[in-house]
Design a protein around this nucleic acid. Sequence first.
RNA 1: GCCGACGUAGCUCAGGGGUAGAGCAACUGAUUCGUAAUCAGUAGGUCGCAGGUUCAAAUCCUGCCGUCGGCACCA
Length: 655
Amino acid sequence: MVAITLPDGSVKRFDGPVSGKQVAQSIGAGLVKAALAVKVDGEVRDLAREIAHDAAVEIVTRKSPEALELLRHDAAHVMAQATQELYPDTQVTFGPATETGFYYDFARKEPFTPEDLEQIERRMHEIVDRDLSLEREVWERNHAIRHFEDIGEKYKAQHIETLPAGEEISIYRQGDWLDLCRGPHLPSTKNLGHAFKLMRVSGAYWRGDASNEQLQRVYGTAWRDEKELKAYLHMLEEAEKRDHRKLGREMDLFHFQEEAPGAVFWHPKGWATFSKLLDYMKRRNEEGGYVEVNAPQIMDRSMWEASGHWEAYHEHMFTTETEDGRTFAIKPMNCPGHVQIFNQGLRSYRELPLRLAEFGKVHRYEPSGALHGLMRVRAFTQDDAHIFCTPEQVKQEVQDASRMILSIYRDFGFETVRIKFSDRPDKRIGADHVWDRLEADLKGALDEMGEPYELNPGEGAFYGPKLEFVLRDAIGRDWQCGTVQVDMNLPERLDATYVGQDGERHRPAMLHIAKLGSLERFAGILIEHYAGRLPLWLSPLQVLVATITSEADGYAREVAAALKKAGLKAEIDLRNEKINYKVREHSLKKVPVIAVVGAREAAEQTVALRRLGGQTQEVLALSEAIHRLSNEAVAPDLAAASEETAPAAPAAAAV
RNA sequence: GCCGACGUAGCUCAGGGGUAGAGCAACUGAUUCGUAAUCAGUAGGUCGCAGGUUCAAAUCCUGCCGUCGGCACCA
C-alpha cells in the first residue's frame, strides 16, 4: 500500500509503487496532459519515476513555479542534440538552466557562427515537434565511462570519474540521442514548447578554470509561452535604452577614447553630477565623524612591498621609473597611505576610533576584457575610509558604518538592499579565536540592528571577515557597492600601534569602509537606475528656460537669472525654433524641468513648468516656481535636516 | 588575459576590389510659432592604426589598438 497525500490534503491509496503519471491519471485526464513532473516530498522528479513509499505529492504543470527550470534544462538538452546532429564533431559538456534561460558548453575546434546558431535553433524546433519521450536509465559507473570514451565524449567521461563513488549515474535518452544528466526532465521534447531563442555564443573555461581549455558556450532564453518570451526580449530592449554608455553620450555627461582605455573623460554636465555625489558624501562623512585626508598618488615600490600589495598585485599596478632609477607605483588602494597618517606621532587610545576618509583616485591595471563603461574602469574614485580603533570598539563601528550605508542608499532611492556576510576562507591569516571574535562582532552588529543578512560562507578576505551591501536597481539588477571589512593584516605589516590605558603599545583594529564603492561606477548605476532621469538635486542642469517667441527673450533672461540666484542650475534656449522642437530636444537630453515663457508669461510674470516626460504644464508665478523648485532641489540629507529644524525657520525668516 | 563579433561623418547606420553614401546633428538663410522634429541650402570622412596581396583596397590577408557579448579576474 502506498498512500499519496495531495496538496488539498486528500489521500489516494495505491496497491503498490505508483508513477507520477498514474497519480495524475487518478485525479483527472486533463491533469495527465498538463503534467510535466511530480514533486515528491518537496523534490521534483520525473513523471515516470515510481513512488514506492507514502509521500506528499504535487503534480508539476506548466504553471508551477518549478516548470521554468525544467523547461530550460530540457531546452539545453534539445540544443545539445540539435547541435550534435548538425555538427557531429562537437563534444558536449554541461548544460544547465540559468535565471532567464539556459546554456550549453560545447567543445569543438571550429567556432560557431551566428548563422550556425540560427541553424541550431531551427533544428531545436524540429526536435520539439518530433515529440521524443525522455527516458531515464541508470548505468553502471564503469560502463558509463567506457561508453562516453568510446563515442569520443571525453569531457563526460572525465566528469563521471570525478563523481562521488556512491552517486547514481543517470542517463537521459531522447530519441537516439542521450546525455549524462541528474535530471529531472520533462516527459517529452514536445513539452518544451517553442518559446525559446538562442542569444549568443561566447567562450567559457572547462570547469570555470582559466588554466583549462576553452569551450564554446551557447546561451539561450526559454519561457513558458510566447508572451513571456516577448516580455523578456522587451525587457532587454528597455535595459539597453537605459545603458549608461548610451545615456552618457546622449546627455553629454562623459566619454571614453582609445588613448585612455578604462579612464573617464567627464564633460561639464557629468562632472556636475559627480561633484554633487562627492559633496553629498563629504557631508555624510562629516556627520558620521570621519575626517578627510589625502595621501600621495605615487609611492615608492618599497611601500607596496611592505603592505603586501606588490607581491599579490604588482601585475595589476601602474608603475613609473624615475631618472634616479627608483620604481614608484601609482596607488591602487588608499589603505597604506592612511596607515602612514595613523603612524605619524604616537597615538593614544584616547584618539580612537580615528576614522580617516579619502576620496582617493586609484588606478588599477584591470584585464582588458573586464572593462565596461563606468562600471569597470582602470582609474576611479573610491569613497574610501579606514577606521582605526580598539578591538572593543569594532562592533560599534561596524554598526555605525552599516547604518550609514543603508541610510545613504535610501537617499538615492534604492528600496531593496541586501547584506551579505562573508566569513573565514580556507586560506587565511590570524588565529581562529580572533576570527571567532571578529565574525561575532560583524554578526552581532547586524543582529542588534535587526538587519537581516545572508551568509556567504568562506568568501571573506584572507585578512578578515566582511559585510557586503548589495542594492537592487529599478529593473531588478543587483549591484554590490558598500563593504565593511576587518583587517588583521595591514596594522601588523605596517606596524601600526597606539598606547593604551595601561601605558603599553597595542595593535589597533582596522576597518576598511566603502559606502558607494567607486564613485564612477555608482554614477553609472544611478544613470541606469533612473534611466537618465536624475532627481533634481543630482541633475547637472535643473531648469531650462525656453522661449516661444523672441519677444520673451528679455523676460527669459530675467527668469534664468532669478533661478540662478536661488541656487538652481539654469540655462536659456533663445533659439529661433518652435517650442515643440525645444521641448523635444531638451526632453531627450533628460532636462528635468522646462520653464516655457512666451508673451503671456512675460506679461504676467509667470512661468509654465513642464516636467520631464509629463503631458501637462503648470503655470506659476515666477516667485512661487522658484520657491518650489529650490525646495525640491535640496539634497535629501539636507532636506531631512531642514525638516528637523523647521520650527526655527519662521523666526529666521522674520529677521 | 581567453573565445567570438564589431570599428565608415558628431550620432545611428548603408556600401563589400574600380570617383565615399543616407537620416539626424552642425553651419547659413527664411519662418516669431503655445508644449516631443518648420522649410530650404551649405559644409563635413586618410573608412581604427600599421603592414601585405593587387594595375587598383573602405572592401581580401596578417599584426596591433579599441569597443561589444561572455568566461576568467575584481586587493
